[in-house]
Nucleic acid binder design. Sequence first.
DNA 1: TCGATGCTTCGACCCGTGTCGAAGCGTGCG
DNA 2: CGCACGCTTCGACACGGGTCGAAGCATCGA
Lengths: 241, 241
Amino acid sequence: MMNQQPNIAAAAFLIADSARAVMLTALLDGRARPAGELAYCAGVTAQTASSHLSKLLAGGMLTVETEGRHRYYRLAGSHVALVLENLASIGPREPVRRRALTHDAQKLQFARCCYDHLAGRVGVAVACGLQERGFLVAASDKQFEVTQAGAEWFACVGLEVAAVKPGRRGLARQCLDWTERQYHLAGPLGVRFTDLLCTKGWIRRAKSSRAVEVTPMGWTGLKKHFGIEEQILRVSGDHTV
Amino acid sequence: MMNQQPNIAAAAFLIADSARAVMLTALLDGRARPAGELAYCAGVTAQTASSHLSKLLAGGMLTVETEGRHRYYRLAGSHVALVLENLASIGPREPVRRRALTHDAQKLQFARCCYDHLAGRVGVAVACGLQERGFLVAASDKQFEVTQAGAEWFACVGLEVAAVKPGRRGLARQCLDWTERQYHLAGPLGVRFTDLLCTKGWIRRAKSSRAVEVTPMGWTGLKKHFGIEEQILRVSGDHTV
DNA sequence: TCGATGCTTCGACCCGTGTCGAAGCGTGCG
DNA sequence: CGCACGCTTCGACACGGGTCGAAGCATCGA
């Protein structure tokens, strides 16, 4: 009678803790988030969060991807999300605590520097544009490969790809964006390209923040080269959270 | 950031205890059982069971009916059964269970009641047959749509589809089968259809288990209407493991 | 090479909760 | 009435697991 093959209680146990439940719901959109952010979401310290995440990982509810010194966690699949959504259909409701982002946080989410290359929604859009135009292709081991057409285009805007010295991890790396959860362009090529955009006056770095501002000239250029429009970019994905 | 409407952890907490999980799965066929029997299923004393049952009751997962000096508990609804079945699909697979399933477990995997509709390998096969014959088509939002031909066929076997009242989640739902990992037919239509199969003497529900047995007459009918053969079904997907 | 950062591991504390014995309460049956 | 039965409530106990401080490890930037 009591022989249930998959241990249903064990699976429920993983969700039963409030800290873990918050982390899981934070990942419900299917995108990846670093351990630190999940710890903040759950309102616990990094140690505690780490303990929870390892349990969820062992239980097969999460997968993890290491990016530099960050570890990005995401749901193991849509079947996990399905269970979480269904679980929400029972159980008592609670007042919605929805906190708008601060003005600064919004700017960071929109465009910023990730170490020394362009990130945020603009950074991801640029990386997507470079791929759509066939200038970059995603390769294995989290690398981008510069195509022939790409090398010509970079030269055209004033960046000689052959002259950029590859780093330890290659020339053009796929870097996971922590607000957009998609990849943007990193590595030496990403750095040089970001520098170039600064030089050309397309973008401007804030003085004491990682925020980046796109100039009117920059928007014109982004539209011309990648079809990126400011209006659309500002509206899309406006999940205030 | 930390916005989850229903307290998902509280719901999961109720399932997370092994004794409670056993009780819930024992009620998964939708029928009512007295507290004592549930205590026996879970292998705990009456006091302990009573404590668990009151928690489940307060959590809205069970309902209770008093009859004489017995108290009969049953699942609060099919949405609870849905969660339990789905939860089983993400349970941590037990370490290399080379061991064959018990006889009871095999029967459950082959044919059983999921709350109040047909599930297991037979349930999935029937749902597939209904789709192959063009009687049902998979629609969005996990729904099945009954085609014109389907309505005629159901009428032919004695089920007037138009007379079946849709529930909150529609008339015919796709329910994920936790052993087969495919969809079987749920929702009001699934319930009525299962009842019909019982009435026609094609299937027979076990007395104290969720198992379902297909009668010889049932096999004849399944072969005639859907081309389902007992031999093939018993062998196929023999992931006994 | 050194410090800062992000994350994990280790160790210790302590609250929550599952458990059962004993008692209480209602029902059914002689 | 008195007793048996089914179930719940109360109280006490013990164990598991969530929590955080401190330390360890890897990566990145200077």
